[in-house]
Design a protein around this nucleic acid. Structure first.
Lengths: 159, 159
DNA sequence: CCAATTCCCATTGACGCCCATGAAGTCCCA
DNA sequence: TGGGACTTCATGGGCGTCAATGGGAATTGG
């Protein structure tokens, strides 16, 4: 297994630590990352987390912009100033920093959600809501499309 | 880690000193700089700080300009005349000079903001405001772009 | 000689490292 | 196929180390 998949909810202990799911840790180790890069998502109360490759991808994107325009400055301010490194201890736990709690609303439990090349952390309740929203949007999209084409439904369907 | 990342707010003591975040100090040491070069940002109430390489980059930028144009003269006047060196003591603290206080509005607390190749100092309140502005601009930019490309979304995904 | 700055030491609070415990899952064997 | 032993993992807590901060002493410059 080489990508972040499925989801799990873990509890934050009295010292503010939470176990990163063993499966995610295995992916990180396989890719050679001991430290996590974390960045609050733009439009949802979630924080994206992943290896340094996540930051590299943002920096590559910045490199494509004219460095004297505001867009490049904004992007750097966002991914460097708003991002952070998060350490994972020898037991596979990370301490949840304040900016993650503020951005996500996390207090006592953390929902880890695999996203392929990275994963997200959510407040469990908000994650459940968002999941339903996404499902509803996809269902609607599929119904709209199937009136014209079967593109989203190669065999039995997405849902 | 070899770049300035994440942000932290530290307090100025009675003598006007403030601790440079340990992570930033580690980056400076790795690059071999004991002294900081500081220059007030043009369009925001922040001061850019970094090693001598920061000044080098500014000078390289000046060198790219036609020396007969006023722009080159202005740039040189600005980054040499308005820039300053800031010392870091044995404890990793710097004294906040007056021009930084005036340009940023800093009084009792300093927000250190990583920017990759350099970092910035802000008054914490203004930093928070600017952060929200940047996020709003990027969100808008992303929505405009997503009609054509998913470049800002590392997943390239639906959500 | 005074004032500002720098160096040194002390405190405290946060964080990383270690060990322990209990629950859940897996594998093997009868 | 069912049960038991082993492994893995999430979680809790003690302890040492380091960083941020405060204050005093020494040094330097005007």
């Amino acid at each position: 297994m080489d990508r972040f998949l499925s989801n799990a909810v873990n509890r934050i202990d009295a010292k503010g630590r939470v176990s990163v799911p063993a499966h995610f840790r295995a992916v990180l180790q396989k890719r050679g990352y001991q430290e996590l890069y974390a960045l609050g998502a733009l439009d949802v109360p979630a924080v994206d987390m992943g290896g340094l490759d996540l930051l590299d991808r943002y920096e590559a994107r910045i490199g494509a912009e004219d460095p004297f325009l505001q867009a490049a400055d904004d992007m750097s301010f966002f991914c460097h100033g708003d991002g952070a490194f998060v350490k994972v201890d020898t037991e596979g736990r990370m301490t949840v920093p304040d900016f993650i709690r503020e951005h996500t609303g996390i207090t006592t439990e953390v929902a880890f959600v695999g996203r392929g090349q990275f994963f997200q952390v959510w407040e469990p309740g908000r994650f459940a809501s968002h999941r339903h929203e996404v499902r509803a949007r996809l269902l609607k999209l599929r119904q709209e499309l199937s009136a014209q084409t079967r593109a989203l439904d190669p065999s039995g369907g997405v849902a």
